[in-house]
């Protein structure tokens, strides 16, 4: 037999022995550790429910806030409301003059009602004319 042939046979026999030897190579301790990892992994999937399941039911107020655009939008809305009330209670001077020009002076209105002039006076006059 040639040297190469002998080498091949020798190596093939060695490989064959090594393959048989590897069959029982894993120790019970290693197998137990691997199995423990496997079961821990499975447990982690079942013990970590989806976020949707754990979320508290959404309240009406939360839905309302979200519909308005969240808390920042709600803050802006509240500020606008407060400003409106404040302007109504204590209007700035400049605003009073402007409003008087547009809507008429409330003092004149009161006086007008008393002297039967102005809008209500005209109504009264018209009523008298009809009668």
């Amino acid at each position: 037999m040639t040297e190469t042939g002998k080498d091949d046979m020798f190596l093939d026999a060695l490989f064959s022995e090594a393959r048989e030897d590897a069959q029982d190579a894993a120790s019970p301790d290693l197998l137990a550790r691997v199995l423990q990892d496997a079961e821990a992994e499975q447990d982690s999937w079942t013990s970590a429910p989806a976020p949707v399941d754990t979320a508290a039911p959404r309240g009406v107020f939360a839905t309302f806030v979200e519909a308005l655009g969240g808390w920042p939008a709600l803050g802006g809305l509240a500020m606008a409301g407060v400003a409106g009330v404040w302007i109504g209670v204590a209007p700035p001077e400049a605003l009073s003059a402007e409003m008087a020009a547009v809507l008429g002076d409330d003092t004149a209105l009161v006086m007008g009602l008393g002297s039967e002039t102005g809008f209500f006076g005209e109504l009264a006059d018209a009523g008298e004319g009809d009668g």
Partner: peptide, 27 residues
């Protein structure tokens, strides 16, 4: 099956694949 939580599949795969991967790593 393992991904679906099957414990028996975990055991079978452990016993089937660990020796092979161990043999490779040992060599």
């Amino acid at each position: 099956r393992f991904a679906n939580g099957d414990r028996a599949a975990a055991r079978t795969l452990t016993l089937r694949l660990t020796p092979r991967v161990l043999a490779q790593a040992t060599r």
